[in-house]
Design a protein around this nucleic acid. Sequence first.
DNA 1: GACCGCGATGTTGACGTGAACAATCCTGGG
DNA 2: CCCAGGATTGTTCACGTCAACATCGCGGTC
Lengths: 338, 338
Amino acid sequence: MANSRRGASIQDVARLAGVSSQTVSRVSTGAEHVRPDTRARVLEAMDLLGYSPNHAARALRNGAFGAIGLLAHRFERTGEALTTEGVVEAAQAEDYAVTLVDVRRPEAGDWQDAAQRLSHQAIDGLVIIRAETATPESLALPAGLAVVVSDSRLVGHYPAVLADQLGGTRAAVQHLLDLGHRTVHHLAGPEDSDPASLRVAGWRGCLEEAGVRAPEPWRGDWTAASGYRVGQRIAADDDVTAVYCANDEMAIGLVRALHERGRRVPDDVSVVGFDDIALGEFTYPPLTTVRQDFHAIGRELVRLLLDQVRGQTLRTGQRVVVPTQLVVRGTTAPPRRR
Amino acid sequence: MANSRRGASIQDVARLAGVSSQTVSRVSTGAEHVRPDTRARVLEAMDLLGYSPNHAARALRNGAFGAIGLLAHRFERTGEALTTEGVVEAAQAEDYAVTLVDVRRPEAGDWQDAAQRLSHQAIDGLVIIRAETATPESLALPAGLAVVVSDSRLVGHYPAVLADQLGGTRAAVQHLLDLGHRTVHHLAGPEDSDPASLRVAGWRGCLEEAGVRAPEPWRGDWTAASGYRVGQRIAADDDVTAVYCANDEMAIGLVRALHERGRRVPDDVSVVGFDDIALGEFTYPPLTTVRQDFHAIGRELVRLLLDQVRGQTLRTGQRVVVPTQLVVRGTTAPPRRR
DNA sequence: GACCGCGATGTTGACGTGAACAATCCTGGG
DNA sequence: CCCAGGATTGTTCACGTCAACATCGCGGTC
């Protein structure tokens, strides 16, 4: 018996079952050409010793870890969490484990630290989710590591999976215009965020096509708190009748601010969010929003990554776009006649 | 140069630097007794070759992976996500990686699958978060694996970290009684959940101490959707003036249902949640709730786990209790005189 | 001038696994 | 009854790393 810390090895099992270690290996990898009774004897021995294969040794032997890394910032947020779920599910379906690296603060230095940590990790590939402020240079990833990214300024440098930001934005803005609103205000995300910029651009473009001059966008930082803070100023502006928010959290904060200032939603002001977080349907009134299929994004990320890991060479510019969808609920209505 | 797939090995670096592989190893592990100029030469060679240590080989050699597993169910939910964040942060501070295993459906079979997968994973210890329906038998974990658990029926079988469910519950119920409510209804979580049961017990005990007969609890499944569904029935009952909900999501669903039925919150009905999710502060009205410090729970889980991994033997009954705290916001008020 | 002590470096081997190759065993055809 | 050939099992070895031990060389001591 091997030492207690490490547990039984393939040798211990072989000895107990009276076969060679290679036969044990064959049983444990499910290879062919093992007689049923031999297999049974080996399995019994494994069970008796509580054997489970040593992952490190396998990884060393095979030159692959069966694991992918996931680099995210504050993945407590709905989008990150759901995408992570999608990644984990898809990876598990392919028998890959997922190792999490969370970057607490989005400053460049932290991304570098994270990348540094990663180069010591046991992974075959890396998924980067919303590395908003990270640049390819600031990352310094180990050479030869397979990488895919989601929305961020890394798109273009690595194969990427994107939500259809523009399509979703147009649907939202057009929905408000169709209801009869003269113009649509925008509560945007941080300036250094790529998805936020795309949503600003889409909103502006859509208004211009409709022959409306876009007002200055309001700025939040994705949090409900920022939506509430900025919302207090928006609520004070009687001209505002429709606001397209860059995410649901800010939209919910905005709605609270509007309520508190006595501006009714949707009668006085219409609000549209983005993401379709689970709670959006149950706030009062339920939130009109643009749904992103985060699970699908996660799945596509894994697909693209494993293609690379398995030897496919992908163009670094390759991208997959996942559709978005307008979900009309209770926070949008035609403007009141005045 | 080794083959391109694997990248440079310690041998390649040694050759290039004109030293033995052992010297390279000493440099890369930061061992003493290396002359500065030798060290510099080795570092240069590492840089040139883009060398990074092979994690599998190290793990094999050291008999430890430098990684812990995290077994969770639907970790998109706030509690799971925040606890996970806490675990990841604490683990990173100790140079441990975190490998995620998500159980999609809470049925026993899925937990078994997950445990099965885990026994093939490269981890030194395992954190189990809210394994609500899992039992020690259904898990069949590899022998000798260090394990800690958070709230679940596994508590008692492994060292555990718990939120002060009872204390939080009493604070919530007492707050409502103090406001003058005759009794407090309870919107509970699923019957097979341990934290849900604890909250039911605490609520019932607190009412009985106050000399009030506890009404039958209402049952949800933690989701806002269930809170809304059950809430429609609660709203129809004019006798209900105060509801303590087992989590914030259900509370938010309940509030929407009350709004829609024309029952004002908090004037007609007071509502208290549990967890203090980020959005709770920004719904309208902002949610009175019981805060759990999920990050602290995550940190304690890691501390307890690494104590084990590093050779401390812990009593399986050991438990750490993390305090909870009542946060009074806008959904609670004295009952209206009728 | 031989020798000691110690810092710096090299050599050896083992961690657990599974591919490649080698050695049996058995079955059925001739 | 013998042999070809597939099925089954065994042997050897290398994956990359680092601990243990061995060796080398240099300055200082008696």
